Amino acid sequence: MADSSFTLRPLRRDDLELVRQWRNHPEVRRYMYTQHEIGAEEHLAWYERVRHDESRYLLIFEPDGRPTGFINFHVVDSKARRAEWGFYLAPDAPQGSGRKLGLIALEYAFENLGVHKVCGEAIAYNMRSIRFHERLGFAHEATLRDHHFDGDAYHDVIGFGLLVTDCSKIKEDANK
């Protein structure tokens, strides 16, 4: 599945401003649980809080050496080897970058982190993320009714899961 022109590397302090710009872009922010614009101090405080957490893996996706996306894995249950993930792309990411980000990130989770299951969530109005998870082979495992309140309204949240045993389908799809 790996393509040497697409790499992942750990998030560095000097990436923070770029990642914060991506996160604050209206087309990214509108699908997040916290939708306010994140300030530099808040972003730095988050980074300082999670960077030494051994259950978190903060990664930068780089096609051809150009930072283009952010991935966050959180191993929430080390005994069951279950991780949650979140991700977003730069607003100007080239077409097809999301699929490549997903494939390389999942390969990293299963092969480098040794997780058995990756879980993801999408607010029900985020059809792009829902389709993305489905195309990567995730199973729709839950609909959490009125699970997220954005300050104005309640929204359902869709829960997804992908098992390490599903990797053969991912690798097969990656080679198409």
Score class of each variant (00 low, 15 high):
113 L>K: 14
161 G>S: 11
21 Q>G: 10
12 R>Y: 03
45 A>I: 08
161 G>P: 12
155 H>V: 09
126 N>E: 08
23 R>H: 10
74 H>V: 13
123 I>G: 04
14 D>T: 15
165 T>E: 00
147 H>V: 08
142 A>D: 09
8 L>K: 05
101 L>F: 00
40 A>D: 13
153 A>D: 06
102 G>N: 00
92 D>I: 06
68 T>F: 03
70 F>P: 14
89 L>C: 06
151 G>P: 12
135 R>W: 06
148 H>C: 00
13 R>W: 01
103 L>E: 12
72 N>E: 15
80 A>I: 01
116 H>G: 05
31 Y>I: 04
147 H>R: 14
140 H>S: 02
167 C>V: 11
64 D>N: 11
58 L>H: 15
83 A>L: 12
133 H>A: 04
36 H>A: 04
82 R>H: 05
142 A>P: 11
98 G>D: 01
93 A>L: 04
66 R>W: 12
121 E>S: 13
35 Q>D: 06
130 I>Q: 14
129 S>L: 11
101 L>R: 01
6 F>C: 13
26 P>M: 08
107 E>V: 02
73 F>D: 05
96 G>A: 06
39 G>N: 15
95 Q>I: 05
79 K>D: 00
113 L>Y: 04
138 F>W: 01
88 Y>N: 14
153 A>K: 13
66 R>D: 03
25 H>R: 07
146 D>Q: 15
166 D>W: 02
139 A>V: 03
19 V>S: 13
155 H>A: 06
156 D>S: 03
29 R>G: 03
113 L>T: 05
52 H>V: 10
152 D>T: 06
49 R>D: 02
36 H>T: 05
157 V>F: 09
97 S>N: 13
26 P>L: 03
173 D>Q: 01
93 A>G: 04
